[in-house]
Design a protein around this nucleic acid. Structure first.
Lengths: 102, 102
DNA sequence: TTGACATGCAACCACTTGGTTGCATATTTA
DNA sequence: TAAATATGCAACCAAGTGGTTGCATGTCAA
């Protein structure tokens, strides 16, 4: 879980997930398209995403295909975020009351 | 948005949010209770959470009360995560098919 | 008013991180 | 086979991060 949050903390990596969402199964070189950074930097980011289980890979010959795995993100939504949403309205009401009592 | 993701990337800060969720409106010293780190370290974390708009504060005398603001988290759930959930099943099916065709 | 208490600010430090360059390995293709 | 292509690995570096210590400021209470 910590790996997922850390992986999502970087804008470049979130952009890579966006790219895979737009077109799944891209190779490393394809994912580098349009980016200014080096291939090695992108490769490092993909490793982090892979370790966080946000990206799954398949080797095909000399190529490596990258697939988005949205399960960990869904898990964040289901297990971690909802518990905050549950208190959302109450917290806002509480904050409003405290602010007004100053 | 980037600030929110970065703020959530640290386990200590997520624990602080959990603590505020359990009991809202705690002071800095109260939030330090049970932790091994120094007050200043916790204070820095709270500043980051505040900058990310995940925590709102109210000064009351010499104390500073901290309130959980779950809105940014809800925004992640609504705007960023759901778009991945939408493709969740399709991506898994796609991945399974590609793996089997190797 | 004086001391205790709650927090803020700043300098410093070890470690991590995002990035680079250079080279190695493996696979396709002419 | 030889060259081009796709990726992997390792060393290195600047900047960022999480943590500390020390001191300053502001507020409450005896």
């Amino acid at each position: 879980m910590d790996q997922v949050f850390r992986a999502l903390a970087d804008e470049s990596r979130r952009a890579l997930l966006d790219s895979l969402r737009a077109r799944n199964g891209q190779t490393l070189n394809e994912l580098c398209g349009g980016l200014t950074t080096t291939r090695q930097a992108v490769s490092k980011h993909l490793t982090i995403l892979e370790d966080a289980n946000l990206v799954a890979t398949v080797k095909r010959g000399r190529e490596k295909l990258h697939y988005l795995n949205p399960v960990p993100i869904a898990e964040i939504a289901n297990r971690w975020i909802r518990k905050f949403e549950r208190t959302r309205v109450n917290a806002l009401i509480d904050l409003k009351r405290k602010l007004e009592s100053q």
